[in-house]
Design a protein around this nucleic acid. Structure first.
Lengths: 148, 148
DNA sequence: GGAGTGAGTTGGGATCTCCAACTCACTGTC
DNA sequence: GACAGTGAGTTGGAGATCCCAACTCACTCC
């Protein structure tokens, strides 16, 4: 009764946004590039794959197509609420990449309204303390039914 | 001079941890499963692919192999500093998955030392305010050399 | 009338994944 | 001392994906 892969929201999330190019397409929308050709250019993905990724992101409710021109019909991709909520994932991933992967200075820099360069930090929503690994303990973890 | 894909730490990070199964393998190490067969079982990845992923994660300095038995030599995978730093990415991804993908209650629950269930929140490291999209502006963004 | 643009679609080859079976070096069991 | 079991991979072949360039279609602009 404890067989099969772990049932986990990380795995579930990856099923939706984990394919190659999905996250980069979303990054582009965050960065303000909302149209197909811009996203193609800025990500480097091939057009057919990007078509598939965008379609899936729309189907799963992360992006929406919005008509911006009627003749001929042209759509741009905008974030839904679920899409906007990915902001924090992207931000932390970027910060990690800046520190441990990218050589040289961060290629992308944001400023926060407070006036400083934006550096994201993850805190516990209750006590507002930075989350450290040693301060967290696993309470419960379930599994998916095994196939045996 | 502004051609080619965007130079971005998200893309760089994805090159290192973005392949299928990499992040789930790392999740397992975070969750305490450090051995090959455990990771195979808990992720559902095939053994050959997992071999390749773990090897790459070791090469890129996210995991380390540590000998835990000499005859026959057996290794377990442990996080390096770079690996530990991915904690925040995983945590935010899990929180997003809990809210927008997983149906029903979160399959995995953590408790913080403060006594409450752990809910991650991303704040600006300077002003400690929660980061909202409208409060951030892009200061600078570079590109990789184009191929034309 | 012809070039240009935006948003895809199509075809074919290259690459990557999946799965089951196999290996190898042991350990413990009768 | 023969045999089942385990841990950590490796190998081979079929099938699924991905990449790229070329093509389409519906326009607009000159």
């Amino acid at each position: 009764m404890t067989e099969g892969p772990r049932d986990c929201s990380i795995a579930n999330a990856m099923e939706v946004i984990g394919e190659r190019w999905s996250l980069l397409a979303l990054r582009e929308v965050f960065f303000g590039a909302r149209r197909f050709d811009q996203i193609v250019r800025n990500t480097g993905a091939s057009r057919d794959i990007l078509t598939a990724r965008l379609r899936k992101l729309v189907e799963t409710g992360i992006l929406e197509k919005r008509l911006y021109e009627e003749h001929p019909p042209r759509y741009e991709y905008v974030l839904t609420e679920a899409g906007h909520a990915l902001n924090h994932v992207l931000l932390n991933l970027m910060a990690w990449g800046d520190r441990y992967v990218t050589e040289g200075p961060p290629p992308t820099v944001w400023r926060h309204t407070c006036g400083e360069e934006l550096a994201p930090e993850t805190v516990c929503a209750h006590c507002r303390e930075p989350v450290r690994e040693k301060d967290m303990t696993l309470v419960r973890s379930s599994r998916r039914a095994g196939s045996s």
